[in-house]
């Protein structure tokens, strides 16, 4: 089975810092909101992708982690396996807020479309043209053995040449993402 020693590349986003292969790539002032942090981190990439601004926080986090780890990488036959604790709960609550008042009932379509956890995986697939295997699991903590075993299965069964996998977690301003390439 795959182990941490088989990791080809890693990216960690937490506490206003983006680290790729243990090297600090970018950081913002610690007091900024996730909204501003993610916007600045996106600008640092210097790419033209207006859809980013319309994503919910979880998708922005996942998108940024994928973007930073995949810079300069071949994405051909790259599978995607993500895990999270809260999934889309933060956006679910925002949507629920918009529909709780029957007298002022204006659900936001742009919010509603992000009320599924695996939408963030879809955003990564769209951005990088991935048409390979992908999966999204919810767990209390990163289920390392399960995910590494699943990544191993994808590689051993020739369903993918490489696997991008890891943890993307956002809930009410608390966030953490770590992605690996096997």
């Amino acid at each position: 089975m795959l182990e941490k020693t088989n990791i080809q590349k890693s990216c960690i986003i937490e506490q206003h810092r983006i680290v790729v292969d243990d090297k600090l790539i970018w950081s913002s002032e610690p007091e900024v909101s996730f909204s501003n942090f993610s916007k600045e981190a996106f600008h640092h990439l210097d790419i033209d992708y207006p859809k980013f601004y319309k994503m919910d926080a979880l998708s922005k986090l996942a998108f940024l982690a994928a973007e930073y780890i995949l810079q300069g990488e071949d994405t051909g036959e790259l599978a995607l396996v993500l895990t999270s604790k809260s999934g889309s709960l933060d956006t679910d609550l925002k949507h629920q807020q918009s529909i709780r008042d029957s007298e002022y009932f204006y659900p936001r379509p742009a919010t509603f479309v992000y009320t599924l956890p695996n939408i963030c995986a879809g955003e990564i697939c769209i951005r990088h043209g991935l048409q390979t295997e992908n999966a999204f699991f919810i767990a209390e903590e990163f289920p390392e053995k399960t995910i590494f075993a699943y990544a191993d299965y994808l590689l051993q069964s020739n369903k993918a040449k490489r696997v991008l996998c890891g943890w993307v977690e956002y809930f009410q301003e608390k966030y953490r993402a770590f992605l690996y390439i096997f």
């Binding site: 207006p50 204006y106 742009a110």
Partner: peptide, 17 residues
């Protein structure tokens, strides 16, 4: 502006709201 179908729904909500 390159808007998409979700944007169209947002504009419909805007018109109503």
């Amino acid at each position: 502006l390159g808007l998409d179908s979700i944007d169209a729904l947002e504009l419909i909500v805007l018109m109503d709201k």
